[in-house]
């Protein structure tokens, strides 16, 4: 092993790496909001929607959960233009992430909803609330609370999985790292640095979710 490490070139390019990391964070954050919204709608419809809608949602969830994210991205980015839907790389990446997270989170949210005792639904209905109102005001909050840890790890998996969107040339951390390593020939140093940044982001997100849980869910119990 006669290789000489040169991390100087990494620190020189740190601003570019961080700009990539920023896009990774932006994409992940938007996809979390979008994916969770999709998941809440789908979970509601999967439990109480008309039968054909339930089947469609079941099909969506199974199709996404049993195919690779990379192939989903290829379909969105390369196949959809053939039927006239043309998205740029960043939008395709975001759409892919929302669709992907939506399917996984649907199952998680559904499990959360089912963990809320039936008596609560019945009590709400007895008070004359509509099904949607019961869902919105009685079930949703404790359901999300019950599955929050699972949702948080799914979000972090999504953030890490977003490195794959570099394959359709969205300019996030992995794509920037690829460009930098191929122009400087310092593959090991750059990948090492990018891996470290991902690790820090994963830890950061985990901390943020813990703080969010404490602020939104844990305090309400004492109050």
């Amino acid at each position: 092993m006669s290789y000489v490490f040169q991390f100087g070139v990494v620190t020189d390019n740190l601003p570019r790496l961080l700009s990539g990391a920023l896009l990774t964070i932006e994409l992940s954050a938007l996809a979390m909001v979008g994916g969770l919204s999709v998941a809440i709608c789908c979970a509601f419809l999967k439990l109480w929607g008309p039968r054909p809608v339930r089947w469609i949602i079941h099909g969506y969830v199974e199709a996404i959960r049993n195919t690779p994210f990379l192939v989903q991205l290829f379909i969105i980015f390369f196949s959809l233009p053939a039927i006239g839907v043309r998205l740029d790389a960043n939008h395709a990446a975001l759409l892919g992430m929302v669709v992907n997270l939506g399917a996984y989170a649907t199952e998680i949210v559904r499990a959360g909803i089912e963990s809320v005792p039936r008596g609560q639904t019945e009590a709400g209905r007895a008070l004359g609330l509509s099904r949607l109102q019961v869902f919105r005001f009685i079930i949703l909050f404790p359901a999300i609370k019950a599955v929050f840890p699972a949702l948080a790890s799914q979000f972090i998996l999504l953030m890490l999985g977003s490195s794959i969107v570099s394959a359709i040339s969205a300019q996030e951390l992995t794509a920037i790292t690829n460009t930098l390593q191929s122009t400087t020939f310092r593959a090991f140093e750059f990948y090492f640095a990018a891996t470290l940044i991902y690790l820090l982001m994963a830890l950061g997100f985990r901390g943020a979710f813990a703080a969010f849980y404490w602020l939104v869910f844990a305090r309400e119990r004492r109050g």
């Binding site: 977003s162 090991f188 990948y191 891996t195």
Partner: peptide, 17 residues
């Protein structure tokens, strides 16, 4: 805590260099 793609890059390009 790190993307499997990065692990793959390090294994592939890392071993090479």
């Amino acid at each position: 805590g790190t993307p499997v793609l990065m692990q793959l890059f390090i294994a592939f390009y890392g071993i090479a260099v």
